[in-house]
């Protein structure tokens, strides 16, 4: 009984806050996808018109698919880049590990916009990378190298996300009982086998958490694609934003967001068959 009281006290403020300022507005937003228009009388008329329109538009569906693929690629790459660093910090960096970890994270404190603008400077035709390469004789003067392409989006997002992903992976590795590794050595495993059979499986929750940290928001990303993506690097988030901010077509914007939510939740759901969600949170 006493315990129920404690749970109630601990949970009530957060639950009330989330219901009032998140769930209710979100439901209202979800209902918008069935509405005729954004304002006035059109708000009260219900319709499935937007659903028909959305699923009839092949270009929209194609872009959604492409964005999921691109987000997936970015997430995998980011994990691959971040894992060795987290591994090094956790196992080999000794007492310096927190300082070094902080070094990795500080760049994330500079405004996102400024960091993306800086990448524009690096990747541009007369930019830093192009000048450097032409100085080396590897590229010709004046060619637009990487900027305004899907690749530029991948590089920039990779840059933005690496610090955020290193963190959960590092936390996951830190939780591994180092005695287990000793035990594996004692049982005759070499370093590679130990990594493969012990470290990696145990670090998986952290890796998955890092993966989702990137994958989920990247599907809805629009600032980076707009600034460095060019015609081929546009993502689904850009047209969702257009529907909300340019057309004021809130019903379609709400529907597109729902579509995005579904494609994000499906992999999450599949994952949850293998890993308990709460494990991802480190519980």
């Amino acid at each position: 009984m006493e315990q129920n009281g404690r749970i109630a006290i601990l949970l009530t403020p957060t639950v009330l806050f989330l219901i009032g300022l998140f769930l209710i507005p979100l439901l209202v937003m979800g209902l918008f996808s069935f509405r005729e228009g954004s304002f006035g009388e059109a708000q009260t008329a219900f319709t499935l018109r937007h659903y028909a329109e959305f699923f009839a538009n092949e270009a929209y569906l194609r872009l959604l698919g492409r964005s999921v693929v691109l987000s997936f690629g970015v997430s995998v790459l980011t994990v691959l880049f971040a894992f060795p660093v987290a591994y090094y910090l956790s196992f080999f960096a000794g007492d310096k590990k927190y300082v070094l970890l902080t070094i990795i994270i500080v760049p994330a404190w500079v405004s996102y916009l400024l960091r993306v603008l800086s990448w524009k400077v690096i990747l541009g035709g007369s930019g830093a990378l192009a000048s450097f390469l032409s100085w080396l004789g590897l590229a010709q003067e004046g060619g637009t190298l990487l900027l305004f392409s899907p690749e530029a989006v991948v590089v920039t997002l990779l840059y933005v996300w690496v610090p955020f992903v290193a963190l959960p992976i590092f936390a996951g590795l830190e939780r591994i009982d180092k005695d287990l590794l000793e035990a594996a050595y004692d049982l005759g495993c070499n370093r590679l086998q130990t990594f493969w059979r012990v470290t990696l499986p145990l670090s998986l929750p952290g890796v998955l958490a890092g993966f989702l940290f990137v994958f989920i928001p990247t599907v809805g990303e629009y600032v980076t694609p707009a600034l460095v993506g060019g015609p081929e690097g546009i993502m689904f988030g850009n047209i969702v934003r257009d529907q909300f901010l340019r057309a004021l077509n809130w019903p379609m914007g709400a529907l597109m967001s729902l579509a995005m939510l579904v494609v994000v939740l499906v992999p999450l759901f599949i994952l949850s068959r293998f890993v308990r969600l709460s494990e991802l949170a480190g519980l």
Partner: peptide, 12 residues
């Protein structure tokens, strides 16, 4: 974490 923040903004 999963919902684009534009959507939360409009909802709020």
């Amino acid at each position: 974490l999963v919902i684009p923040s534009v959507v939360i903004g409009v909802a709020l």
